[in-house]
């Protein structure tokens, strides 16, 4: 059709929430540069600063891949931090008391995490209990069980197989010093970009979140979609549990994955995933994680106490929601204006 080029041109500049994320990263860096220039320069100049950001990312990104799907279906999962803690402890327990080889640990992390997520999905999809209540409950169930496994005792690096330390120290290409942990997270990101766009399931996730009723009318099995999404989120959290041990060199029932749900939800929503579902991209989520990682590392570097951390994560969620609501209000106004029945 002749008019297609023109049609396309009209739609070219679509506002994308991802742009906001990039803007905020620059804004925060700028703010800290103005506020404490000497400390900022010092912090940025040091290699550890970037290392700290980069090495903190794989865990957040991995869990966020699941959270992105959960929020896109219009739900939220606050139990991810506890699933990270529980699977971490479980894997550590296998390492310490059964001398389990590395691959068993990996398998256990995937299976235990997935089952924990499926447990959430079971109650949310098939027993129709509110997702917030279910995940709030399981958040405490898994955290409690994390303590039960070893009677609250931490598991140190000395009990872990040596491959665990390779994850953080070595990489597939020795000359470039990028460790395995980051390659794994990158692998998940690439798979998910493809999965959300080209798999039937990925499209169904967007459809369910965008308009659940319409999805049902189109014959999409909404319950199954939600169940699988929660199970996959559990799986990602389980893998992140194993990664925690590699990153920090210990598993602790209290610390492993503690408060992670907040960081992950914050990076997902600031990355442009609509809290009411239906909209969001993997790339946006990665940018969101980068933002949170920067903030997390920057706060102590420019001389603030890290006690501010959770407060700032909370504020970031609020900011993201304000942006999200702003988009929605604009959208609904647009629709109303076009809906003239008696109007003309």
């Amino acid at each position: 059709m002749k008019n297609r080029a023109r049609l396309r041109a009209n739609n070219k500049f679509i506002f994308k929430p991802e742009y906001v994320t990039i803007f905020i990263i620059i804004f925060i860096l700028g703010l800290s540069a103005i506020y404490k220039p000497e400390l900022f320069i010092e912090a940025v100049r040091r290699r550890e600063f970037f290392q700290s950001i980069i090495l903190g990312l794989p865990l957040i990104v991995t869990v966020a891949m699941g959270m992105m799907m959960v929020i896109t279906t219009g739900c939220i999962d606050v139990s991810v931090g506890s699933i990270v803690g529980f699977t971490g402890m479980f894997v550590g327990f296998l390492f310490k008391f059964y001398d389990a080889p590395f691959w068993v640990g990996v398998l256990a992390a995937i299976v235990v995490g997935m089952m924990a997520g499926a447990f959430n999905g079971l109650f949310i999809s098939y027993f129709r209990i509110n997702f917030l209540v279910v995940t709030l409950a399981t958040m405490n169930i898994w955290r409690g069980l994390a303590f039960v496994i070893t009677d609250g005792v931490e598991i140190g690096a000395s009990y872990m197989p040596e491959q665990m330390s390779f994850l953080i120290l070595k990489g597939p290409i020795p000359r470039i010093g990028i460790p395995w942990l980051i390659w794994i997270a990158l692998f998940f990101v690439i798979i998910m970009v493809f999965f959300m766009k080209y798999s039937h399931f990925g499209r169904e996730v967007y459809a369910v979140g965008g308009n659940e009723n319409a999805a049902k009318l189109r014959g999409i099995n909404v319950k199954k979609v939600k169940f699988v999404v929660f199970a996959l989120t559990g799986m990602f959290s389980g893998i992140a549990g194993l990664m925690y041990g590699a990153r920090f060199g210990f598993f602790s029932p209290g610390d492993t994955g503690n408060g992670m749900e907040l960081i992950v939800i914050a990076s997902t929503v600031i990355g442009g995933v609509s809290i009411s579902g239906g909209r969001g991209s993997i790339i946006g989520v990665v940018l969101g994680c980068l933002l949170l990682g920067t903030v997390q590392t920057l706060i102590p570097s420019v001389g603030f106490s890290s006690f501010y951390n959770t407060t700032i994560y909370g504020l970031i969620i609020i900011i993201a929601l304000i942006i999200d609501t702003g988009i929605k209000i604009r959208k609904s106004r647009g629709v109303l204006a076009k809906k003239g029945v008696v109007g003309d």
Partner: peptide, 22 residues
């Protein structure tokens, strides 16, 4: 339907095939 049952965040093609891509 009286009110179009569409997925606002998907594009036209994705809307048309949502639910029966398989």
């Amino acid at each position: 339907h009286q009110e179009p049952q569409i997925f606002p965040d998907l594009d036209v093609t994705e809307n048309i095939f949502a639910g029966h891509t398989r």
